[in-house]
Amino acid sequence: MEKALWYLLVGTRGGENRARIIRTIDERPRNANQIAECLEVDYNTVRHHLDMLQDHDVIEAGGDDYGKLYFLTDRFEHHREEFERVLEAM
């Protein structure tokens, strides 16, 4: 998870938006449209970042396609301190 967080947040473009998405989901579970509205980011951009975060086991989805809510994974929660360290380095 440590390497994945460095890659997702520092090693690629879009890291700042991914960090904002993680923070938003941490506040409360949301669907892609709610995240896009909250962050004032294009829906398709949010979908791209959500897919990347899911692929690296940072978030998981629950519910049906349209109203699917996103949650932080237990694995991410276990590595939350590393997430905070990566943010400090950004």
Rank of each mutant, 00 (worst) to 15 (best):
R75D: 09
W6G: 04
G11M: 01
E40D: 15
Y43I: 11
R85T: 08
N31D: 13
F83K: 00
Y7C: 06
D42S: 12
E77W: 08
H49R: 10
I22M: 07
R13D: 15
E27G: 08
K3M: 10
R30L: 14
I21G: 02
N33T: 13
L69S: 03
P29F: 03
W6I: 05
V10A: 10
E82R: 02
E84V: 12
R23Q: 12
D64V: 10
R47W: 06
E16C: 01
L53K: 03
I35Q: 00
W6Q: 08
E27W: 06
D74W: 02
G62W: 13
Y7S: 09
Y70F: 12
Y7A: 11
L69V: 04
P29N: 09
G63K: 13
G15E: 03
L39W: 06
N44D: 14
K68M: 15
E77L: 14
V10M: 07
R28A: 14
D65S: 12
D65I: 13
M52H: 07
R30Q: 13
H49K: 08
N31V: 10
H78A: 07
I59F: 06
G11W: 00
I25H: 02
M52F: 05
H48R: 15
R20I: 00
R18Y: 11
R28Q: 14
A61T: 09
L69K: 08
G67F: 04
I22R: 01
G14H: 02
L53Y: 03
E82G: 00
D74V: 00
L53D: 01
R30I: 07
H48L: 15
V41N: 07
V41Y: 05
T45V: 10
I59M: 07
R20F: 06
Y66K: 12
D26I: 01
A4T: 04
F76I: 02
G62S: 14
V86Y: 06
D26A: 11
I25L: 06
D65M: 09
G11L: 01
G62R: 14
L50I: 00
R30P: 08
K3P: 06
